[in-house]
Simulated scan of single mutants.
Amino acid sequence: MKKLLTLSALACSALVPTAMAFAEEVNVYSYRQPFLVEPMFNEFTKETGIKVNVKFAKKGLAETLAREGDLSPADVILTVDISRLAELTKQDLVQKVDSPVLESNIPAQYQDTENEWFALTTRTRSVYSSRDRVGRLGDDFTYADLAKPEFKGKICTRSGKHPYNVSLVSSMIAHHGEAETKEWLEGLKANLARKPQGNDRAQVKAIKEGLCDVALGNSYYLGKMVNDKEQKAWADAVYINFPNQNAEGTHVNISGMAMAKYSPNKENAQKLMEFLSADTAQSMYAEVNYEYPVKEGVKPSELVASWGEFKSDAVSLDDIASYHSAAIRLLDEVKFDL
């Protein structure tokens, strides 16, 4: 009996460190790709000893969280675009995080007024133009100009209902109202060189092939194409332009994060969120994915900096998110993708 008790005690003592190690973890649900976030998670673990477990997905995270309910293991959610962050808050899948560190690192424009989501990086919704046939678009060029007759048959874009374009349309509503935005969408559609299709890189390829002269696209794709042997020729065929420089500024979208509503590791989740908003992770984001760091004082990569400085739209992303339903309705009304 004494031997059995001793063996039992040894077994229990062996489990204690394992349980403690298991407690020092954080679970992430991510739309962001492994190559981008895993180096940051490794650095976080190195600094804190907290293990990061990641579930990667291309779509459906909101549905997964809703299905899992209060049994969900998710602590932190990483996603792109304000519309996806707004979806999480609207469905009550995230919780408020009160953190002086996050408040200090992230400008108010790029965080939820209720502290339910926070931006990590920014990217512009730029206009690419053919170097040979168009040249650079000046500071007086605006998104509204895309609806002018001079661009008839010269514009390429991905689906109007893609979140990146929905956010742009939402920003147009925020500044100009629904009636004027609908008129703009009708003009933009009339100027398309082809039916909306493909991704942002495909639009730049279309410019290279002479199918169109200008295209909407996120800024960081230019960095990706420049560093892709097969796509560098596409990038070399275009200029990147930042519209609305003499108006309200270029539309800026974000990648961001939120704490899951039923986070089982809240303290570790907050530590990870604070780490991702600080200098080390912000610099890694800038160098790896050609996005703009959200934290002031952290420089973009040398390549991104070479594209030049620009004025960004100061409208709150909270305000833009509030117009997403209206944006989708207008896109349907003008049958933009048909």
Rank of each mutant, 00 (worst) to 15 (best):
V54F: 04
D140A: 14
L120H: 09
Y143N: 04
A108C: 11
A86L: 14
V76R: 01
Q111T: 12
V76E: 00
S83P: 05
P100V: 05
S83R: 06
D132R: 09
S72G: 06
D132Q: 13
D140Q: 15
E150V: 11
L88E: 00
K55F: 14
E47S: 12
L120G: 10
D140T: 14
T89I: 12
D112G: 05
I50P: 01
V134T: 03
I77F: 03
S130V: 03
G49A: 10
P73M: 07
P107S: 10
E63K: 13
Q91F: 07
A74T: 00
T113E: 15
D140E: 14
V80W: 08
D139T: 11
L88I: 02
E103R: 13
E87T: 11
K148N: 12
I155F: 09
P73N: 06
Q111R: 14
A62M: 06
L85Q: 01
R125P: 11
I82H: 07
Q111V: 13
P149H: 09
E116C: 12
V80K: 08
S104D: 15
L78K: 04
N115K: 13
A62Q: 01
K90M: 13
K58L: 15
K148G: 14
N53R: 08
D81E: 15
P149Q: 02
A74I: 01
V94P: 01
W117I: 05
G135A: 09
I82G: 07
D92I: 05
E68L: 08
V101W: 00
K148C: 11
A66V: 08
G153P: 02
S129M: 04
L146A: 06
F151V: 06
F44L: 07
A108N: 15
E68A: 08
R123E: 15
T79Q: 01
Q109C: 09
L78H: 05
K152C: 12
R133D: 13
E68G: 08
L85D: 03
K46T: 06
N105P: 03
D98C: 13
Q95K: 11
S104L: 15
I82W: 05
E43Y: 05
K46G: 09
K46A: 10
E87K: 06
G49D: 10
D81Q: 13
F44V: 04
L137S: 00
L137H: 02
S130G: 02
D75T: 08
I155D: 01
W117L: 02
D112L: 06
K46N: 09
V52C: 04
E114I: 08
K152V: 13
L88Y: 02
E103L: 14
